[in-house]
Design a protein around this nucleic acid. Structure first.
Lengths: 132, 132
DNA sequence: ATATATAGGCACCTTATGGATAGTGAAGAC
DNA sequence: GTCTTCACTATCCATAAGGTGCCTATATAT
């Protein structure tokens, strides 16, 4: 094991042209994180997701769901009724990912105080520079 | 366990005003992922990081490192020599996160083929719609 | 004398993204 | 009629991301 942090089969997210790089790019979104976490417990309707994710606009919600659907992480089911009813649920692949993403979410929640403190120190340092 | 996917102590990344939400926002960046993964094995210099992360511009690299430093994930050490020498390494908090992030990276590398296939299907469907 | 390497800072510009606002259609409540 | 709900779609605008080029300092190599 020389410098093998590398992938099992030639995939390397550090390379711009590697498919895994674009996957990482897709995952690098606040709303993707939250949407996948929200769907982890089961299928939800558009409106339920919107209420759960404070601050998301309908546009971003739809956009995020379309990306997740395109990439095979989310399944979309339309009921042809009026008023419309659409449900979203994670695919197996999505479930698989959800475990990891909710670990990140938990990490963020656990370490938020530390990071807030670090940010405080950083801006204090910055102010002190400005005062000199 | 009713609906306890929630945080241990009142932190909830789904709430816009929660500190953990801004932490998630900070983590939701391709370059943050890769930088933390790159530093996982030990300290690296700016140029080494730049060479490792294909496609990153000096500006984005610096920007990313400044954010990570501000949030207490990365430590920056300057050697007052000429030519300049600066090294970056993960703090303990950063190490802690690096484990999770490199799991995500591995996931991306492992599942890249599936996702590529899903994207292919999606665009095929799209084309077929356009052809009708 | 000239060039190189190093780790940036700074200013400018273009493009992509996020987010806000308004609109659509059809059923049912009032 | 008018209003609401639902799951969107379309449009605009402000902000952010990202790219480019030029600048700094000096020891070392040519």
């Amino acid at each position: 094991m020389d410098s093998e942090d590398d992938s099992p089969l030639g995939y390397d997210a550090f390379r711009r042209t590697c498919p895994s790089h674009t996957v990482l790019e897709m995952l690098a979104s606040k709303w993707v994180y939250l949407t996948v976490c929200a769907l982890r417990r089961g299928r939800l309707r558009n409106g339920e997701l919107a209420r759960k994710m404070e601050g998301i606009t309908p546009k971003m919600l739809t956009q995020t769901l379309r990306v997740l659907e395109r990439d095979g992480l989310v399944r979309r089911e339309v009921f042809p009724v009026i008023p419309p009813r659409v449900e979203y649920e994670l695919t197996e692949l999505g479930q698989n990912l959800a475990g990891l993403l909710s670990q990140i979410r938990s990490w963020a929640e656990e370490h938020a105080p530390e990071i807030k403190e670090a940010r405080g120190r950083a801006s204090a340092d910055h102010d002190e520079m400005a005062a000199s």
